[in-house]
Amino acid sequence: MEARELKKILAAYDTKLDEKLSLNVASLKSINLDKSERSTQSILKYRIIEIVIFSLLAIFIGNYIARNWSQTHLAMSGIIVGVFTLIALSGSIGQVTLLQQIDFAKPTVDIRKKIELVNTHGLLFIKLMFLSTPIWWSYVVVGSDYLFNIDLYNNMDSNFVLKYLIINSLLIIPMVWFLNKLTYKNLNVKWVRKTIGFFVGTKTMKALEFLKDIEEFER
């Protein structure tokens, strides 16, 4: 059967629908159209809460850096924690922007991309967690100083600190390479797929797979 013949069948189906399909107006009228609310409002609320939390954290860290500016190790640790807070904050602001752009009257591919990018938000935090591994000491230094007033750096052996800094600085490059690989674009690579699958939930994985489908569809 050729496409032309299929279209003939569909034309016959169209004629049939013209004759036999009607709108159940009573049913349509009974839907309480004015009392509907977008479910996206609840995601928006969560993302706004994230923005508030990260903004407060950024203010706190900024204040911490200013207070400890004269002590290089504390200021440096604060700056590192601050950079991560700002990345998380910009991620959440990006999510709110995306959510506000989601309008179902816009073209399908554009809207699906935005929806799936919102659905994959969790991956940002997984990446930040990984990226934090070489500099996890910054969190500990800031935390112990702020919460317990203990300056860990002063109690550490300088040789240990030097070795630690060298090893972890070297770790940053492979870590950035590794994290760059963890995107939907590389889902066809077995280890990327397994790593993402291990750390994110099924929903995030489904969203990433769909982003890959969209990319193929656009080609």
């Binding site: 629908l17 036999k20 399909l21 009607s22 709108l23 159940n24 049913s27 349509l28 009974s30 839907i31 309480n32 009392k35 509907s36 609310e37 977008r38 479910s39 996206t40 609840s42 995601i43 989601i102 929806i115 659905n119 489904k206 769909f210």
Partner: peptide, 21 residues
């Protein structure tokens, strides 16, 4: 794709179809 968060919340759901065929 069973993405409920993109749906519209509405307390009233009709038992009947809006189409008659």
């Amino acid at each position: 794709r069973k993405e409920k968060k993109w749906s519209m919340k509405n307390d009233f759901y009709n038992e009947e179809s809006i189409f008659k065929i």
